[in-house]
């Protein structure tokens, strides 16, 4: 019995220590970019790795999700003769929920796991230690550019996702199912608001970007530097960040969209 409590206590303390280390890492890297002359090329490189490399999967998924939404929405709406409302249905569900959330999940799988594995491998091959011994702060040099790249990329990816998905819905709804293109756009415009829907969606995806990138970098930075440790850390990145995104999405939705 005592043993159980002891283990429980130790696990709790370990968790707190992990949160502490993660926060330390975040603060140590967030406002600690190398000077612009050296830092900007690093940032651009990471934007390429994290952002541009995720572009294809985001656009293809967006297209299909938009098409499926249109198809499903249409079959329900047509029974009420309200198929003209397909536009706002698709646009609102994308801008408020699916855009930020699906992007964050895909990002965690595509870029987050890659970040964890990369940092973990750098740790295992002593590259991080060797940076430290060369008097270069790895938080500054390695973590910070990746962090900012994630933070910048994800909202852009979410916007691209939503835009492509709406075009996909237009393709299915207007070109295949025969909704009038004018009413598709105009009813959408009447219902969607820039501040309430688009900007709130953007805020969501900024929060997700922070959480997913943070988890991915922390898991890599703190992993056990063996092949087993790295694979565990990579899995944990995807699982933890997906759960965090879905949980936070509920909280954010409750705060933003409940009157």
């Amino acid at each position: 019995m005592m043993d159980l409590f002891q283990r429980l206590g130790r696990t709790t303390l370990d968790k707190f220590a992990a949160i502490g280390r993660a926060t330390q890492m975040l603060l140590g890297s967030l406002f600690n970019l190398p000077n612009p002359r050296k830092g900007f090329p690093l940032l651009v490189r990471q934007l390429y790795m994290v952002g541009h490399q995720s572009l294809l999967i985001i656009m293809v998924s967006g297209l299909f999700i938009g098409m499926v939404l249109a198809l499903q929405g249409y079959t329900v709406l047509v029974d009420y003769g309200a198929e003209d409302s397909l536009g706002p249905l698709v646009a609102l569900s994308l801008l408020r929920e699916l855009g930020p959330v699906v992007t964050a999940l895909l990002f965690a799988g595509r870029a987050g796991s890659a970040l964890t594995a990369e940092i973990g491998l750098m740790k295992a091959t002593e590259q991080l230690s060797s940076l430290e011994m060369m008097a270069v702060d790895p938080l500054k040099r390695i973590i910070a550019p990746r962090f900012w790249a994630g933070f910048i990329s994800m909202p852009l990816l979410a916007l691209i996702f939503s835009a492509v998905a709406i075009l996909g819905a237009h393709l299915v709804g207007v070109d295949w199912l025969g909704i009038d293109t004018g009413s598709f756009w105009s009813i959408m415009q009447a219902q969607v608001s820039l501040e309430k829907d688009i900007l709130n969606g953007l805020i969501k995806s900024l929060v997700f970007a922070l959480v997913v990138t943070w988890i991915a970098l922390y898991k890599g930075y703190d992993c056990i530097p063996t092949s087993e440790g790295i694979s565990k850390a990579t899995t944990e990145t995807v699982v933890h960040s997906s759960l965090a995104v879905l949980g936070l999405d509920f909280v954010l939705t409750a705060v933003m969209f409940s009157n």
Binding site: T125, E126, S129, S130, M133, A135
Partner: peptide
């Protein structure tokens, strides 16, 4: 410490070259 480290260097077992 960072100042001092510029005066020493370390050769890691794996080499630790940046890949």
């Amino acid at each position: 410490l960072y100042q001092t480290r510029t005066k020493m260097s370390m050769l890691f077992q794996s080499g630790a070259l940046f890949t």
